[in-house]
Amino acid sequence: MQSGFPDIWDTRGFARALDSAFGALVAAWGDTLEAMFLPILRMLILMEKGLQALPWWVVLVALTALALHASRSWRTAALVAVLILAIGLLGVWNDAMATIALMVVATLLSIVIGIPAGILMSRSDRLRALALPVLDIMQTMPIFVYLIPFVMLFGPGKIPALLATIVFAVPPVIRLTDLGIRQVDEEIVEASRAFGASPRQQLWSVQVPLALPSIMAGVNQTTMMALSMVVIASMIGAGGLGYQVLQGIQRLEVSRGLMAGLGIVLLAVVFDRIAQAYGRRMQANLHREG
């Protein structure tokens, strides 16, 4: 084939070697990895089935209560209740529950991975210099590219969908944890050192509490990114609202795609309101006046 660029090295041979190496990896480790992630898969399925089994009004009351707790505002709580009711009225309730389950598990795992990673990053400039470009790549690489290796390792299903979602959604919480800790007032950290705080005491009694608003902003972004992944993740068997969108495309049914799409928007608003309200409360905690 005619190429516009001279063939300086054998890309085709390299690609073949990479593919076969990955194939060997899958053959050798596929089963082990699958067994390792089995508990997470069970958790995800349990949560999905649980949410779907609950009466709809229990979910509505629970999410409204969460919104009220976070915002201390009846208006926000009422808005959340109306939005959830609307999701039911759109006729996508069960799919929405599956999407919530995937999003919540992906967000929780992203937090569990992301906050410690962000803390480590904040403690070493060298690690930060290495990690920043990696995080950039994770966020800019088309998501479909992650799907290939994950599907090869696990086969189509919820686990590769979950992992691809985490890869895509974890960078904000890492970045904002790192940033939040680095922005803590230097004099307050110095004061804790002057009173003999060990590095661990500095971290937990000063740096992490003061970085919490920033960390919460990261959690909020991570939640939104996880939600935006559901359509793509549905292509490899995650189910949920994304699957309905996908079917809408395949069957050229505008209504199906529109209903599911609106459901995703409503869910996004609900979780954004809740996460933002928590973030604001933490901010207020730091600058309490009057």
Partner: peptide, 13 residues
């Protein structure tokens, strides 16, 4: 040894 700081350096939370 204890220290007092110019900008107080209290924990705001």
């Amino acid at each position: 040894i204890a220290m007092v700081f110019q900008r107080f350096a209290l924990l705001p939370h």
